[in-house]
Each structure stands twice: as structure tokens, then as C-alpha cells.
């Protein structure tokens, strides 16, 4: 996926002011402080806040003018910030609603999601909103996985979670990498990004100002101080 020179507005406010990100195989993390446009970037890619200019190429096809459901059905999974589960749907319904079968041996089925997150299997009949934070994040990921995406957009998966739950999420992301699913991760928690990202972009006021391999950035305190204040 190639995002180039994306400009997105919320009403009159110019949030993304030229954002360029490339995701090939692997995991790319976009870092940045609060309010820098990270979430907007994912929303623009997904067509939820359509960009005013710039392009999003997915497997050689321009998708920036497409509707969200069309983009989703082209193999892009979305895990929104704050999980945004459906309070009226049970855990099971979350997984059957978005399930899109794929004729390959290792497709993601609701059962396979239960296999990697057994705690969800025990809560099948419960409303999505009555799970713990960690379980909610698992369900949000599971619901994206059953669409059988080739790329998954993860928006702040660690937000508000206990360290042990974060560990589960990181573990799952590593599994996804093994299953050949690419990840575009947006995070404030650089430890999560460090755990499995291969490339790093830094977003500052809606502009991608920095790009490098993950190690080069994370092991350089000056760069971290400069862009993230950490």
C-alpha cells in the first residue's frame, strides 16, 4: 500500500497536510504525539474521512475515492481506536457478521479466532460491550481478522490496557506477521511499536517528517526526544 501526499480536512481544519507512508510486507508503525493526525491517517485510508487530495494505492489500484465497505472488501481490515465494538451484538455475532470466507487453507474463521483467544469463546453470548478492555481489543482484532484481510490497520491497540493484555496483543501481532498479514500500526506506546514493527514513520502536525527502520529510530534517544519528547 502506498499513501502519498494525503491531505485531509475535518471541516475547515487541515489535519493531514501531506502524509506519505508505504507499507510493503511487514509491519509499519506510525508514531507521533496526540493530535498529530495518526488516527485521521487510518480513517482516511479506510475512506471514513475521505482525503481531499493525494492518493492511496492498494495493490496498484487507487482506493482514495472508494467507500469504506468497498475498501474493506478489498482486503483491508480495520481495528479502530477505542475498539468501538457494537453494544447490541454478542461476541459471536461480531465474528459472524464480518466473516468473509476465503478459499484458502488457512483462512480466518470465527473458530480460528476462538482458538487464539479462548477467553472469547467462553463469552460467546455476551454483549461486546461487557468484556474487559483486553478482551474487547481481542474481539476488535478478531472481527477484523475474519474479513480475511491482507493488511490490517491497527489504531492504538494498547490504549488503556494492562501490561499483561498488551503482551497478548503484541503476541497476536507477531502471529499475524507469521501468517503473512501486513500491519499498519498507529501507536503512542513506542514499546508496542518496538516489539514488532519493522519500519517507523513519525507524524508531526499531519506531515510525515521522519522515516527509517525501526531499530535505527528506537535505539537513538536523540531522535525519540526530538519527535516524541520521550
Amino acid at each position: 500500500m502506498e499513501v502519498s501526499d494525503l491531505h485531509t480536512y475535518y471541516g475547515k481544519s487541515h489535519v493531514l497536510q501531506g502524509c506519505t507512508v508505504t507499507v510493503e510486507q511487514g509491519c509499519v508503525a506510525v508514531l507521533g504525539r496526540n493530535g498529530m493526525g495518526k488516527t485521521t491517517l487510518l480513517r482516511s485510508v479506510m475512506g471514513l474521512t475521505p482525503p481531499r487530495s493525494g492518493s492511496v494505492q492498494w495493490r496498484g489500484e487507487e482506493i482514495s475515492r472508494k467507500k469504506p465497505f468497498a475498501i474493506a472488501s478489498m482486503g483491508i481490515g480495520y481495528v479502530p481506536q477505542g475498539r468501538r465494538l457494537f453494544p447490541s451484538l454478542s461476541v459471536e455475532e461480531h465474528l459472524t457478521l464480518t466473516y468473509r470466507p476465503k478459499r484458502t487453507a488457512n483462512q480466518w474463521t470465527p473458530q480460528r479466532v476462538y482458538d487464539i483467544f479462548p477467553e472469547l469463546a467462553q463469552r460467546r453470548k455476551l454483549s461486546g460491550s461487557r468484556l474487559s478492555g483486553g478482551e474487547q481489543q481481542m474481539l476488535a482484532m478478531g472481527r477484523a481478522l475474519v474479513t480475511n484481510p491482507s493488511l490490517i490497520l491497527l489504531d492504538e491497540p494498547s490504549e488503556g490496557l494492562a501490561p499483561i493484555a498488551i503482551e497478548r496483543i503484541v503476541e497476536t501481532c507477531r502471529e499475524l506477521r507469521k501468517a503473512n498479514i501486513s500491519i499498519l500500526l498507529v501507536e503512542q506506546n513506542i514499546h508496542v511499536a518496538a516489539a514488532f514493527a519493522e519500519r517507523i514513520y513519525v507524524l508531526l502536525s499531519g506531515v510525515t517528517v521522519y522515516e527509517s527502520g525501526a531499530k535505527a529510530f528506537l535505539e537513538n534517544p536523540d531522535l525519540r526526544q526530538k519527535y516524541l519528547g520521550l
Partner: peptide, 25 residues
């Protein structure tokens, strides 16, 4: 029914439903 589940999902949060491939239109 699955149709009903997508209606409920749309009522709850139509944006997220559409981003997960539900044709809300």
C-alpha cells in the same frame, strides 16, 4: 438473522460497520 445483526451494528455505529465491510447503504 445476519441481516438483522448488520442492522443492529449499523444502529450502534454505522461508521465502524461500514469500515468492516458492511454495505450500510
Amino acid at each position: 438473522t445476519k441481516l438483522g445483526a448488520s442492522v443492529r451494528a449499523g444502529v450502534d455505529d454505522r461508521e465502524t460497520a461500514s469500515a468492516l465491510g458492511v454495505n450500510v447503504d
